[in-house]
Every structure is written in C-alpha cells, then in structure tokens.
C-alpha cells in the first residue's frame, strides 16, 4: 500500500488538486456560501481521475504486482487525504473569520463547527456517488463527476436554505462558536461518522466493481 500511495503522489497527483487546498481561505470572505469551499477538493479528485485516464494510470497500476482492490483503496485514500487536509487547513480561516468579523454570514451558514460537520456528510455522499460510478467504468470520468456534483449541489442548496428557514439550523447551528457548542459538536460527530460510513461503503463497492472490469 505504501508503494501504491507513493505512486499516487508521484505519478497520479494533479497539481491543481494541491492548489485547491489553498481555497480553504475562502472561509475568510465575509459573506460567501461557505459550503462551496469544500467542493473544490472534489474538483481536484476529478482532475486526478481524468488525468489518470489520459496517462493510462489505471492500466499501469493494474500491471504492477498489486491486488486490484488495493489500487482502488490507494486512490480513495488520496481522496480522503485531500478532503481532510482541506478541512484542517480551513480551521484557522474559520477561526479568523469569526474573530475578525463578528457579524454572521449573510449568504448562509456561518464558518463554524456545524459547517464542518455538514460538509463532511456532503463529501461522504460525493464519495459514494462518484467512486461507485467511476469504478464501474474508469474510461468515463465526466458523467460520474457530473452526477456527483449535481447531488452535492442539491445538498448544498438544501443546507444553505436550511440556515435561513429551518428554526433549529437558523437559531442554533448558524451562530458563531462557541454558542450552542454541544449541538454543533453533535453535528460534527454525526457528519464525521456519516463521512466515514459513506466513504467506506464507496470503497468496498468500488473495489468490487473494479475487480470485475475489463481494462
């Protein structure tokens, strides 16, 4: 697995995927749909898979002395690494946003703990929708990404709308930290669990699909 991860970083990583990590800084914009911030890692993952098709990365990997399921695991570990790294990098910007600009986000959800929890859940859903379609046929990257994006944006719209119209979200979750800390921590924990479950399920399903696929 170590060799496969090294190969992912040396040969398959797209520079834009790393560059997008810097977009965690979007959380410092006073008024912005902050859920969009975490969308950029999904775009980075799409670029990695798209470039991988052009460079025949999947075929090269399949010819190496490794199990086919490990090829999937390595790619998904890279995706998880990027997603979690973006979260970690975003934390200081969320703190800065709250310290420097006390006013809430006019557009939607504040840059707070609950935002991270709900974003994790959304990324988990993205992983399920994208990877289970991508590994059905690795030659088709665009359609799985389009479908996964569409689902992500529906969730994003619902989450942003909820910050305006659902009383619990509007009054408790869409507030500066540390107000309603317990509720927000529960949302973060639930988001993290859902992210792990969706991603793990996606990985198992993708491994099974990739194993059966003719390259």
């Amino acid at each position: 697995m170590k060799a496969l991860l090294q190969k992912e970083l040396r040969l398959a990583m797209h520079p834009a995927a790393l560059l997008f990590l810097a977009l965690s800084a979007l959380l410092i914009i006073p008024n912005y749909p902050y859920y969009v911030t975490f969308f950029y890692t999904t775009l980075g993952i799409f670029f990695i898979c798209l470039t991988g098709r052009e460079t025949q990365d999947v075929l090269y990997s399949a010819l190496l002395p490794v199990a086919k399921k490990d090829i999937v695991t390595a790619r998904m570990l890279v995706a998880v690494g990027l997603q979690l790294l973006q979260m970690v990098i975003a934390v200081p910007f969320a703190v800065l946003r709250q310290r420097l600009i006390p006013a809430g986000n006019e557009v939607g959800m504040d840059a707070n703990i609950a935002l991270f929890g709900i974003s994790l859940m959304m990324l988990g859903v993205f992983n399920w929708v994208f990877f289970t379609r991508y590994y059905h046929n690795v030659q088709k990257v665009g359609m799985p990404f389009n479908i996964a994006c569409a689902v992500y944006f529906v969730l994003l719209c619902v989450a942003e709308a909820a910050a305006h119209i659902v009383p619990f979200v509007r009054d408790k979750l869409d507030t500066p930290d540390p107000r309603y800390l317990a509720e927000k921590l529960v949302v973060l924990a639930v988001g993290a669990v859902l992210y792990a479950l969706f991603t793990l399920a996606a990985c198992r399903r993708a491994q099974s699909l990739f194993k059966k696929q003719d390259l």
Binding site: K2, K7, R10, L11, Q56, D57, L59, Y60, L64, P65
Partner: peptide, 29 residues
C-alpha cells in the same frame, strides 16, 4: 507479475513525467 512484464505498444504511460520519476515510483513494487 513479479516475474513478468507486460508492455502494450511502446511505453505510453505518464507522457509528461520524467523517466526518473516513473522509475522511482515503479521500483518499490
């Protein structure tokens, strides 16, 4: 696979990566 090598066409993988990078990534396997 440790004892064989399969080459399709020429070496058509990673056209933009330096040979030394490809070798460094392949060696550990």
């Amino acid at each position: 696979k440790q004892q064989l090598s399969f080459v399709m066409g020429g070496f058509s993988y990673y056209p933009m990566k330096k040979l030394k990078t490809i070798t460094a990534a392949t060696r550990p396997f």
